[in-house]
Design a binder for these strands. Structure first.
Lengths: 153, 153
DNA sequence: CAGTGCTCTGACCTTCTTTGACCTTTTGTC
DNA sequence: GACAAAAGGTCAAAGAAGGTCAGAGCACTG
């Protein structure tokens, strides 16, 4: 229960609660030093505890003056989250389901007309990918990313 | 917190905003002195932050009375879109270029903040495609589709 | 006690930044 | 015109992050 990873998770979530702007910036190496572990352990924590599905968005920049930014998604959209999760169960999603889903989002005024059209264009463009499995998997993956992003802004 | 390069970028953009003529003239050595760095660092900033894709044009003159002139391009929406489309005509496009273009579309108020974020998420998700060539080609293909959609709505 | 699924580490990779040595162009002076 | 001085330009290498991945360790569970 109180593994290094869990402690780091708790610590980061506390920082997030205390943050006024809805996100926190951290230095991978410093955080690792604070918890006396290797830097890659930080990645592990981010990958397992701060995923899109759990309501977080992680951005980063490499190189000098790099950083990790953890953003907490708006809780009010929890309903939408579970909807998405249900639909995109195994990562894959069919073209029809994806389009139905976008239509629902538009009908429910969660996305604008232009946003809807844009996503339709993206879905259209997927035909460029010939491999059926890759296409379906990528569609699910991408949809998840886009929808979670829409939720957080 | 932020890097020298980012600070210099911010500074130059502020100067540009304040300029009435649409361009600014600077002395490489003086700017370097102001930021306490080597002169070639100025070139780095210009090469990475003030590119054509990002909507800037840099002219210069060497020798005595030399200077650097940074010009902000002020192209119309149609021009910007056709520029982008032209660029993608060869099919492929790099991730960086695609992101630069999206940023410009946002800066030029051709797309909303949410639409910008959405497209960034789509670009992020492309990493799911492992094949380098397929990814770059698909990126170009998709971008074209989306841009054409934007034009028509 | 073998299997399964988290944790954790370390070696190696990629990206972005910064510096410095050396090069080229332009201007001013004899 | 030759030469010196005054810019700016190029490029490779070092430094400063963060990213990836395979495998070792560990803790339950049947």
């Amino acid at each position: 229960m109180s593994s290094l990873a869990s402690n780091m998770e708790t610590y980061l979530k506390k920082l997030l609660r205390l943050s006024a702007v809805g996100y926190i910036d951290i230095k991978r190496k410093e955080l690792a030093a604070k918890f006396k572990c290797v830097p890659s352990q930080v990645n592990y924590v981010l990958e397992t505890r701060f995923t899109l599905e759990k309501g977080y968005l992680v951005e980063s920049k490499r190189g000098g003056k790099g950083y990790l930014r953890i953003r907490q998604l708006d809780v009010s959209s929890e309903e939408l989250l579970s909807m998405i999760l249900e639909e995109i169960i195994e990562g894959q999603i069919t073209d029809n389901k994806a389009r139905d889903f976008m239509q629902r989002l538009f009908d429910g005024r969660l996305i604008s007309f232009r946003e809807w059209r844009m996503m339709e264009a993206v879905l259209d463009s997927l035909n460029y990918i010939e491999d059926d499995t890759l296409r379906a998997e990528f569609r699910g993956w991408m949809l998840k990313k886009v929808l979670f992003t829409l939720i957080s802004f």
